[in-house]
Nucleic acid binder design. Structure first.
Length: 575
RNA sequence: CGGGGAGUAGCGCAGCUUGGUAGCGCAUCUGUUUUGGGAACAGAGGGUCGCAGGUUCAAAUCCUGUCUCCCCGACCA
């Protein structure tokens, strides 16, 4: 492609509304333009990157026997009512009414519509297993879209759905897609991690996320450097690095004492001279979404509560909300900072770290007072002891093979074993060999296509611009033709351009009548992995420059050997 | 939805406090000189100042309403 015919426009200045590097670079490079909050036009370069990623996805999925289809983007209400998600999905589902007064929504996820599609065709055990996928637009009416393509309202997603006879078969399908995803991300040449994840409201109980590592990632990951264990902090088991024994101390008597002004763990710790870790704090949550059902959660003062773990422990639909100060006062008779489990009539859940303690300090449910010498079992009865805290860096890996490290990541893929959640609700069944009706076992597998493109930039850039991995680069080579008016120079550049294309290398040739500095700046910004410079000055000595965008290392090569040098460099950059 | 900020030329901004009929840089167009890391000079085009009311002889500027966008939070894959 020649720049002069390409509709590529770059900006000299940074856009003010872009906060993170990848978003800034995509806008500056003209890769995307925003139409409205969370809605973007993909320019010609971004579109090429998307197509390259889609091709890789298709190759890897087709290789393991997945079948591509295209599902409707506009979907009828009735199917969503069948699974109950017309209401459950909340406001992220964009609903509208047709002129014949039928209700529809835009596809936010496609379990319903594909389960409907499959149940109409599949009758016999002979029809399964099958895994179908599509690459299509999704629309989710985000409360707050941001970061360009990383959290857009409309975005491109590859979603696959597996349909199996048995749970065993579904697990096999899950593993098959897992392995295909690993190959996809390996081919992209990105640093990624597969982590254990929470399954959210999609349902099911086996779930892994594929994260592209990046400083600005919204998710916190805990990774064991000495094994393949990795988990999203939401679900990562929290195991103290130093395994301690229950305190052997004898139980002391319960005693109430004044703690004026000590409302926070920090001030309490300073006031009493007890480390934060050895204090016990009481937090309050409402575990019902439409009524008032408070519970108390006890944690060590130094720990942070993990609401997802409460959700999973109690089998809630969503993580519970913390009580407001007023609600706490209603339950405890004291304001937060002086509350504790002794004498409460609501269930008390105890973080496992606390269960080892004896004779600890808690709020006395009387403003300005605490108890000391508190012991569970004697002074109050915990409902359950469980892992309820956030895991942190330095905690022990659950496989016992080392201490966890924290990374940040961008969730690019998420795979779930669904079981029969949707197939049961929608009566997606087959007849087994005995002629008995059985419910289909399902899995679903998402991969954010547009998000992955931007996440790649988030991981691969420097102060001058993007540094595309070869697999995702819109073009492998950026050819700077420095003196387009000089016939000799122009002829050589065009020969190299044609030669490379004929050898299967895609080239963007900057043939504008701009000054060299402008072309170099744009080449750095746009980020093709290899830059070739053809100019009058070099050509006088018979030299062409071949530059590696990442290292900026320059090779001076002859006109004749230029194409082969370029191909060699492109090949060497493939990861 | 709560808190904060902003809408003035394609992009980035000033002007608003103290009303007087719109300006700067970049980009664009023409010409000349330049030409290996965002050139210089000269000239030109381009804006119902987000929208709707109101106050006033007069509103980008003051008042009211409204829409949109950005940031933090809550929510979400």
């Amino acid at each position: 492609m020649k720049w002069s015919e390409s509709h590529i426009y770059t900006l000299k200045e940074d856009p003010t509304d872009a906060e993170i590097p990848s978003h800034r670079l995509m806008v500056r490079g003209g890769y995307i333009k925003k139409s409205a909050q969370g809605l973007h036009t993909y320019g010609p370069l971004a579109t090429r990157s998307l197509r390259k990623l889609e091709t890789i996805i298709r190759e890897e999925l087709d290789k393991v026997g997945c079948v591509e289809i295209l599902l409707p983007f506009v979907q009828p209400k009735e199917l969503w009512v069948e699974t109950g998600r017309w209401g459950e999905m909340g406001k992220s589902l964009l609903k509208f009414v047709s002129r014949t007064n039928q209700e529809f929504c835009l596809g936010a996820t496609h379990e319903e519509i594909i389960t409907d599609y499959v149940r109409r065709d599949v009758q016999s055990y002979r029809d399964l297993p099958v895994t179908l996928y599509q690459i299509n637009t999704k629309y989710r009416d985000e409360i707050r879209a941001r970061f360009g393509l990383l959290r857009a309202r409309e975005f491109i997603m590859k979603d696959a759905y597996s349909f199996d006879l048995t749970e065993e078969g579904a697990v096999k399908s899950y593993q098959k897609l897992h392995d295909a995803y690993v190959r996809i991300f390996e081919r992209l040449g990105l640093d990624f991690r597969v982590v254990v994840a929470d399954s959210g409201n999609i349902g099911g109980n086996r779930s892994q996320e594929f994260h592209i590592l990046a400083e600005s990632g919204e998710d916190e990951l805990l990774v064991c450097p000495d094994s393949d264990f990795a988990a999203n902090v939401e679900v990562c088991p929290a195991i103290d690095a130093e395994l301690s024994e229950p305190s052997p101390a004898a139980e002391e008597p319960l005693e109430k004492f004044a703690t004026p002004g000590m409302k926070k763990i920090k001030t309490l710790s300073e006031g009493l001279g007890i480390p934060e870790r050895e204090l016990v704090k009481s937090l309050f949550f409402n575990i019902s979404e439409n009524s008032f059902q408070p519970i108390c959660v006890l944690l060590r003062g130094s720990d942070e509560v993990n609401p997802v773990k409460i959700k999973n422990l109690l089998g809630l639909a969503n993580p519970p909300e913390m009580l407001t100060d007023e609600e706490v006062h209603k339950v405890c008779g004291a304001w937060p900072g002086s509350c504790g489990p002794v004498g409460l009539s609501i269930p008390v859940y105890m973080e496992q770290g606390v269960s080892l303690y004896k004779n600890y300090v808690v709020g006395a449910n009387d403003d300005g007072f605490h108890y000391k010498g508190v012991n569970h079992g004697r002074d109050f009865q915990p409902e359950k002891v469980a892992d309820l805290r956030m895991a942190v860096e330095g905690d022990r890996s659950p496989d016992g093979k080392g201490l966890l490290k924290v990374y940040r990541g961008i969730e690019a893929g998420h795979i779930f074993y669904l079981g029969t959640k949707y197939s049961k609700a929608m009566k997606a069944e087959y007849l087994d060999k005995e002629g008995q009706s059985q419910t289909i076992e399902m899995g679903c597998y998402g991969l954010g296509v547009s998000r992955t493109i931007q996440a790649a930039i988030e991981q691969c850039h420097d102060k001058d611009g993007i540094i595309w991995p070869v697999a995702l680069a819109p073009y492998s080579v950026h050819l700077c033709l420095l003196d387009p008016e000089n016939d000799d120079v122009s002829r050589v550049a065009h020969e190299i351009y044609e030669k490379l294309w004929s050898q299967g290398i895609d080239v963007l040739m900057d043939d504008r009548s701009e000054r060299p500095g402008v072309k170099f700046k744009d080449a750095d910004l746009l980020g093709m992995p290899v830059r070739v410079t053809v100019g009058g000055r070099g050509l006088q000595n018979g030299e062409i420059e071949v530059v590696d965008r990442q290292s900026k290392a320059v090779q001076k090569v002859s006109v004749e050997s230029a194409p082969s040098s370029v191909i060699k460099l492109v090949e060497s950059l493939k990861r």
